[in-house]
Design a protein around this nucleic acid. Structure first.
Length: 324
DNA sequence: AAGTACCGCAACCGCCCCGCT
DNA sequence: TAGCGGGGCGGTTGCGGTACT
């Protein structure tokens, strides 16, 4: 007997979610809590696949989700975590409680990949005539996956990776345990979110309010959905991108702080060492942390510290330098 | 102003993991 | 112990918006 589909293919609506559907879903989850997704569509009166409901909730409606521009700090964490963990977006997202794995994945694919590629090519040109080992080491610090490594080093790489993952988890555990008297060994981002944001559905109402704020009842259901959604996004501060000059400045600052050694001639071990977090970046971190209500980022400073710590930054650099 | 190309993101698809029986 | 099924995850797609010609 074959496995039945999670939902009937017939009569199941696909495509963009309407505000009405969002409201139905959020109302249901507020009342019953997330979980048992198989029953959610029927119980909530939605003609949607259970998976679709779950995704909509986790990627869009869940409380505490931050949308819009990624901060430099978030970018750095994503870059470093991607180097460390590969394309394990859920794992990466667990360290960025306000971002979803889908968001991070999209951001990586659309922004950071290009950014790093661009940086890689520019640096390759810059160092073409000089010793290449330096730049190789730098950019090999951001492998897309362990497959990029030679098989002879893979075992070693994996052991180090596992060690660092464990250390990261421990650091995060320590950081989070100070927020919540009930420590958890499970680090799904949902759990972290719940710990970091004590009121379970605190921002649901906010999400819905924002949703409704820009929602004009549509006359033609098929045509206004995306417009509404964009308005929703805009109303949530997702003014997608800053003007280009500002973005350029930010990128430069990012590159300087992230890859401060690029184009310079310091010793190889100085890659992304603590000087990679420039004073202005440190300052930025401080300022950036404060608006995070509940002190979430402040509480995570241990992890940040770990992430930007010399030793851990140098791990992938030094290790990966051997893989090319 | 119109047509085209490109980009970003929400959502879907299909595989995998893991708990339950 | 094997099979089932729910849920999670990463990769991919398709659509709408924007930039360019």
């Amino acid at each position: 007997m074959g496995r039945p589909p999670c939902c009937d293919k017939e009569g199941v609506k696909k495509g963009p979610w309407t505000p009405e559907e969002d409201i139905l879903l959020v109302s249901y989850i507020q009342e019953h809590g997330p979980g048992n997704w198989r029953n959610v569509p029927s119980n909530a009166g939605l003609r949607r696949c259970s998976k679709s409901c779950r995704l909509r909730w986790t990627n869009y409606l869940r409380p505490g989700i931050k949308r819009g521009d990624f901060t430099d700090q978030e970018e750095k964490m994503i870059i470093h975590l991607q180097a460390l963990l590969g394309n394990r977006w859920a794992a990466i997202a667990s360290y960025l409680p306000e971002r979803t794995d889908n968001d991070i994945k999209n951001y990586w694919n659309t922004h950071l990949k290009k950014k790093l590629k661009k940086l890689q090519s520019s640096s390759a040109n810059h160092h073409h005539q000089s010793s290449s080992s330096r730049s190789d080491g730098l950019f090999s610090s951001f492998p897309s996956s362990p497959e990029h490594h030679s098989s002879s080093n893979r075992g070693q790489w994996e052991r180090r990776l596992q060690t660092d993952i464990n250390m990261a988890k421990q650091a995060l555990c320590d950081a989070l345990s100070t927020m919540d008297p009930k420590p958890s060994s499970n680090y799904s981002h949902d759990h972290q979110l719940e710990h970091a944001k004590p009121p379970l559905y605190a921002s649901n109402a906010e999400n819905i309010a924002r949703l409704l704020q820009s929602w004009v009842p549509k006359k033609e259901p098929s045509s206004s959905v995306s417009t509404n959604q964009h308005s929703f996004c805009d109303s949530m501060g997702a003014n997608k991108y800053a003007n280009s000059s500002e973005e350029t400045l930010q990128n430069e600052a990012l590159f300087r702080s992230l890859f401060g050694a690029v184009g310079s001639t310091e010793s190889p071990n100085s890659d992304l060492s603590h000087e990679s977090v420039s004073p202005e970046t440190s300052c930025f971190f401080e300022q950036e942390s404060k608006p995070m209500c509940d002190g979430g980022w402040n509480k995570l400073s241990m992890l940040e510290k770990w992430l930007f710590d010399d030793d851990h930054y140098s791990m992938p650099l030094q290790e990966n330098a051997n893989f090319l």
